[in-house]
Structures are given as structure tokens and as C-alpha cells.
């Protein structure tokens, strides 16, 4: 089937089988390899992307289901030439080690801050609880999101 998906502001088209997973379309057909695969059971969140702004696990969606949608991947997080505050926060607070879960973590964090600009630690832990990290123990991921929230608040204020 012919599909068109707007990824990070750019239209991508592909001719795919209905069974093709969205993550495979993003990684292999569109060549955006920042979205990762960590499990098969919609458990780990390494494949998280935003579909029309909502965090979803792209290994548990068929590419045909995203036909016509707008998808944001890690490659689309930058604000112009600058890293977003969430990206900067992960660097500042050492919110990543091996980097494999990081794209998904940053995408759910970005969506969280859209909805709740000043989250508590519990809010953050709850929001990222669909994403597994095996390296950081989550401590510095929480701090990274708090850093970004503070920075966002400073910019708005």
C-alpha cells in the first residue's frame, strides 16, 4: 500500500505491506535510525515516537495506520540549530549512558512538558514508566526533565 507520513515536517512516502511495523518504515524506509527497537511486546518504549503529538510505541502500530499522520522522532526534537531544552537537560544532568532508550525517553518527556510544564518527580516517573532504561536507574532522567522544565519556565517567564 502507498502511504505518506509527515515525519519531522518532511513528507515521506513508501509502498509497504500492511504488516510492516511503523518502526521499520521509519528506520528502514525513511532512513531515520534514531528510533530504536528494544522488545517485541510493547514493553520497553525504545521505539517511542509522537504520532500527532501523542507518544506511541511504533513497534506496536502498523505503518499503514500512520498514513496521513504527523510523526515526530528524535531527529525532529531540535529547535532550529539548537538542541531543545529536553535534549540539553539530558546532557546537563547525565540522563543517558548507552543512549539506546534516550530517544524514547526524550520524546515522552517532551510530550509530558507540553501537557504539564511543571511536573513533580512523581509526575515525571509516572510519565516515563512505559519506557525502560537499563543504565541510569532513572535518577538522572528525572533530573533532566526537571532541568528542562525549569529552563522552559525561565524562557516563558
Amino acid at each position: 500500500m502507498q502511504i505518506t507520513i509527515n515525519v519531522n515536517g518532511t513528507e515521506h512516502t513508501a509502498d509497504v505491506e500492511p504488516r510492516r511495523l511503523l518502526v521499520d518504515a521509519i528506520r528502514s524506509d525513511f532512513g531515520l535510525r534514531g528510533t530504536h527497537i528494544g522488545c517485541d511486546t510493547t514493553s520497553c518504549g525504545a521505539c517511542t515516537v509522537l504520532v500527532d503529538g501523542v507518544p506511541m510505541k511504533s513497534c506496536t502500530m502498523f505503518a499503514v495506520q500512520a498514513d496521513g499522520a504527523s510523526v515526530t522522532t528524535v531527529e525532529g526534537l531540535k529547535q532550529g540549530a539548537e538542541l531543545s531544552n529536553v535534549q540539553k537537560g539530558f546532557a546537563q544532568e547525565h540522563g543517558l549512558q548507552c543512549g539506546f532508550c534516550t530517544p524514547g525517553m526524550m520524546l515522552v518527556s517532551t510530550a509530558l512538558l507540553e501537557e504539564n510544564p511543571d511536573p513533580s518527580e512523581d509526575d515525571i516517573r509516572w510519565a516515563i514508566s512505559g519506557n525502560i532504561c537499563r543504565c541510569t536507574g532513572y535518577v538522572n532522567i528525572v533530573k533532566a526533565v526537571q532541568w528542562a522544565a525549569a529552563q522552559n519556565g525561565g524562557e516563558e517567564g
Binding site: 518504549g45 507518544p55 515522552v108 514508566s129
Partner: peptide
């Protein structure tokens, strides 16, 4: 129900 991302879908 499950986790936040699964709840979104």
C-alpha cells in the same frame, strides 16, 4: 491499565 504509552493507544 498497562503503561502510559499503551494507554495512549
Amino acid at each position: 491499565i498497562s503503561d502510559p504509552l499503551v494507554r495512549n493507544r
